[in-house]
Simulated assay, not measured.
Amino acid sequence: MSEAYTYACRDCEGMETCPGEVTAGSKDEVWKLMELHAVIAHNEDPSSWDEETRAYLSTLIRAK
């Protein structure tokens, strides 16, 4: 059985009230869904995220 990964937006500093959460079969898929969520729910441009931001966000992706 393959491992699943999850990201809950509320775990991100400043996003505590956001109900967005994604689960997928790989970290790469979770990243794509996180980026899509950021665009749709928060009007963010993920291409503007610097390496520090991406490193922080990667710590919020958890094995389920």
Score class of each variant (00 low, 15 high):
residue 8 A to S: 12
residue 10 R to L: 13
residue 11 D to Y: 10
residue 11 D to A: 04
residue 12 C to G: 14
residue 12 C to S: 15
residue 12 C to Y: 14
residue 14 G to Y: 06
residue 15 M to V: 04
residue 15 M to Q: 10
residue 15 M to L: 14
residue 17 T to W: 12
residue 19 P to N: 09
residue 19 P to S: 04
residue 20 G to E: 00
residue 20 G to K: 05
residue 22 V to Y: 00
residue 23 T to S: 11
residue 24 A to Q: 02
residue 24 A to T: 03
residue 25 G to Y: 12
residue 27 K to V: 14
residue 28 D to S: 08
residue 28 D to Y: 00
residue 29 E to I: 03
residue 29 E to H: 02
residue 29 E to D: 11
residue 30 V to F: 04
residue 30 V to M: 06
residue 31 W to K: 01
residue 31 W to G: 03
residue 31 W to A: 02
residue 31 W to H: 08
residue 32 K to C: 02
residue 33 L to W: 03
residue 34 M to S: 01
residue 34 M to C: 05
residue 37 H to N: 01
residue 37 H to L: 07
residue 38 A to W: 08
residue 38 A to T: 06
residue 39 V to T: 15
residue 40 I to Q: 12
residue 40 I to A: 09
residue 41 A to R: 12
residue 41 A to M: 13
residue 42 H to W: 07
residue 42 H to K: 12
residue 43 N to L: 15
residue 43 N to M: 13
residue 43 N to R: 15
residue 44 E to S: 14
residue 45 D to N: 14
residue 45 D to M: 14
residue 46 P to G: 04
residue 46 P to I: 05
residue 46 P to H: 08
residue 47 S to M: 12
residue 47 S to D: 12
residue 47 S to A: 12
residue 48 S to T: 15
residue 48 S to D: 13
residue 49 W to P: 12
residue 51 E to T: 14
residue 52 E to D: 13
residue 52 E to G: 05
residue 53 T to I: 13
residue 54 R to W: 10
residue 54 R to M: 06
residue 55 A to G: 01
residue 56 Y to V: 08
residue 56 Y to P: 01
residue 56 Y to E: 09
residue 57 L to M: 07
residue 58 S to L: 01
residue 58 S to H: 09
residue 59 T to A: 03
residue 59 T to R: 06
residue 59 T to E: 08
residue 60 L to T: 05
